[in-house]
Amino acid sequence: MSAANLPQPAASDSVRMIRLMGSVSLICGLLIVGTHIGTMEPIRRNQEFITKETVSALLPGVDKQAVYSLVNGDLQPGAQPNVPVLYAGFDKQGALIGVVIETSERGYADTIKAMYAYSPDLQAITGFQVMELKETPGLGDKITKDPAFLDNFKKLDVTAGPDGKPAHPVVTVKHGTKKNPWEVDAISGATISSRAVGRMLAKSTATMLPLVRKNLDRIRKGN
């Protein structure tokens, strides 16, 4: 069957079609733009609120926050898309409490995204919070809430070695065998997810902490 057999719309039909599509598009466009403008403010507030909440939960006592992006191995103020972002938290007197760094790693099912707090004064990880995960419910997702597991990150040692990276990389060990301050005690029955957390911290601290240390004076001043 060829196109010639189909009824061909006359020229006036084409004009009618274009006019109709044009007006429907106009109505639809107006509807979308209207909604976009109307919801812009609440959406921005929502997203900011979530990050702010997480940063304050990870750095207790935080009063003011500053955002930095990692661009070509250098820290730049302000959040930029598609690059690692870190947040600095200051207390009421303006002194730096710590920085919060985003990280991710492949877990048992899909990527786990998380944030952790690093204190330059203690040279330790002082908090850890999972932002997104698809781990098995009731098993792998214990890494978000298991209190004993989260206790690992109250003061996890990442003291710098000679090259600026942690002297002892963070490592997950079998449940109940934690001996050193840089080890993470795995959740029994959720070894794979626990290990993913250890790996993501080891990787992220190896690249981010030297940078943070290099720029520490700048961050402390807040610019």
Binding site: D13, R16, L20, V24, C28, L31, T35, I43, I50
Partner: peptide
């Protein structure tokens, strides 16, 4: 709506409302 472009028109209309819903949900709860 002329017969020849009806599906295109319907999809345009549907896509509009889906986009609106998308914005609304984002505004209500992340």
């Amino acid at each position: 709506v002329p017969k020849q472009v009806r599906i295109a028109t319907y999809i345009l209309i549907i896509a509009t409302f889906v986009t609106i819903v998308d914005y609304l949900i984002k505004a209500i709860s992340v």
